[in-house]
Each structure stands twice: as C-alpha cells, then as structure tokens.
Simulated assay, not measured.
Amino acid sequence: MTRGMPIPETVTVHVPFRVVKRGGRKEMHLPDGAAQSRRTDSTLVKALARAFRWKSMLETGEFDTITDLAEREGIAPSYMTRVLRLTLLAPEIIEAIMDGKQGPKVTLAWVLEPFPIVWEEQRAQFY
C-alpha cells in the first residue's frame, strides 16, 4: 500500500500457529524461528518455592522428619518427597523455569517424575 491508495475495509492477517495442551491449559506455539514470548509457569515456580522452603525447614531442624512436615502441610509424605527432589535440579534448569524459558514438555507432572541426579544427565533430558 502507498499513501495515495484508498484504505481497504477489510485487512486479513495470516499468523501460523498451533495450539498445544501444556499442564492442563492450552498454549499457542509459533513456528520454529518465530520470536515467542515466554510466560513463567506459576505451578512450576510455586513447586520450586515450596521445595526449597521445605528443605530449609528440614535442614534447620524446625521439623525432624518429612512425615512430620507433610502432616503439618496437610499433604502426603510421598508427594512431599517428589517435590523436595526439585531442589536437586541443575541450577540452570531452575533458572530456565524461573525465567519461563523451559521447553514445552517441562511441566510439573514431568519434573515430578524420577530424574537423574547428575546435572549433565538432567540437561540432556531437559533440552
């Protein structure tokens, strides 16, 4: 269009994307190479915060056992141990989650599954 041309009444814009389910909600994914803004996954961030808070409570002796802490928090000890494992994630993986730069497969359910303790092996699964 140029300045001398009349403005059309209808303008059609084509934006290629696909809708992907992620963590119980739907996200829009742009094609490879397209700039895509990221949002932090609040569920993952909250789980990380809880994990580090619980770890601190256990390390300072505020609670003697995971069972005692789980009882106070009103959750199952088995769930608490799975969340506590998040404190063993490689620092750059934690940073990526906090910045919303984790890959689409990285959901709370995915990180609560058993993962390697060795950070290099974690990176291989994560990226």
Rank of each mutant, 00 (worst) to 15 (best):
M1S: 13
T2H: 07
R3W: 15
G4R: 06
M5W: 15
M5H: 14
I7H: 15
I7E: 15
T12R: 03
T12L: 14
V13M: 01
H14T: 10
V15K: 00
V15R: 00
F17K: 10
R18G: 05
V20M: 02
K21M: 14
R22G: 04
G23Y: 07
G23N: 11
R25P: 03
E27K: 10
E27W: 13
E27H: 09
M28K: 09
L30H: 04
P31N: 07
D32M: 01
G33F: 12
G33R: 01
G33M: 06
A34L: 10
A34G: 08
S37E: 10
S37P: 15
R38G: 15
R39T: 13
D41V: 05
D41I: 12
S42T: 15
T43M: 11
L44N: 09
V45R: 00
K46Y: 14
A47W: 10
L48M: 10
L48R: 07
A49R: 14
R50K: 14
R50G: 15
A51S: 13
A51W: 05
A51P: 10
R53H: 12
R53N: 05
R53S: 08
W54Y: 05
M57W: 05
M57R: 04
L58G: 01
L58P: 02
G61H: 01
E62L: 02
E62N: 04
F63C: 01
I66P: 12
I66N: 11
I66E: 11
L69A: 05
L69T: 04
L69S: 02
A70D: 03
E71R: 08
E73G: 03
I75N: 09
I75D: 09
M80G: 14
R82Y: 10
R82H: 06
V83N: 12
T87D: 06
L89W: 14
A90H: 12
A90N: 06
I93F: 03
I93T: 02
I94V: 11
I94K: 08
I97F: 09
M98K: 13
G100M: 05
K101I: 02
K101V: 08
K101A: 01
G103C: 09
K105H: 08
K105Y: 04
V106S: 04
T107L: 03
T107H: 01
A109T: 09
W110A: 01
L112H: 09
L112I: 12
L112G: 10
F115A: 03
V118M: 00
E120L: 08
E120F: 00
E120K: 13
E121A: 03
Q122P: 02
R123E: 07
A124R: 14
Q125V: 13
F126Y: 05
Y127D: 05
